[in-house]
Design a binder for these strands. Structure first.
Length: 152
DNA sequence: GCCAACGTTGGC
DNA sequence: GCCAACGTTGGC
């Protein structure tokens, strides 16, 4: 099992959307960055994912979800109506992948970026580096544990 | 709303 | 294949 962090603007999709229907999966689509896509392709069923709320009031990690499918072609890339439409994608050669996620837990309080910056376990993690724009970030087990230890 | 960081595009 | 221009991300 591997560990990850995915960023989202809570207006778009937040931990509450997962918590609202804990038995249902939500498709994580619209990733349009090659590095992030490659990480999505590495994901496996059962992997754990921190949900990170960005560009909002309470910036930080809000909870945990799990991967319920292997990566598959992101349907929004084929849809001209979608903001994520990519005219260069074809059914034969899709460029972008999506994944399905299901609720695991919501933190009582969002674990603030400030606290994450002060966590030694994360000192090497790109999340806390200034100007970092990667929306899917792999976590080592010790990074994951370091964050999880702050929740309790 | 500002602006630094940085990925992507496109002309050469 | 270089690199300037441009667009987007995301914290503040």
């Amino acid at each position: 099992m591997a560990y990850w962090l995915m960023k989202t603007e809570p207006d778009e999709c937040s931990i509450d959307d997962f918590a609202a229907s804990p038995a249902t999966t939500i498709r994580w689509d619209g990733v349009r960055n090659y590095q992030a896509r490659n990480f999505i392709r590495d994901m496996e069923i059962g992997d754990r994912v921190f949900i990170y709320h960005s560009s909002c009031k309470k910036i930080g990690i809000a909870g945990v979800v799990e991967v319920t499918t292997p990566a598959y072609p992101d349907p929004t890339q084929f849809n001209p109506e979608s903001p994520y439409y990519d005219p260069k994608s074809t059914q034969d050669k899709p460029r972008w992948d999506a994944i399905d996620l299901r609720f695991v837990s919501k933190f009582d309080n969002v674990l603030s970026l400030d606290k994450l910056k002060n966590l030694t376990a994360l000192s090497e993690n790109p999340l806390i580096r200034m100007g970092n724009r990667l929306s899917v970030i792999p976590f080592t087990e010790s990074e994951w544990r370091g964050v999880s230890n702050l929740i309790k």
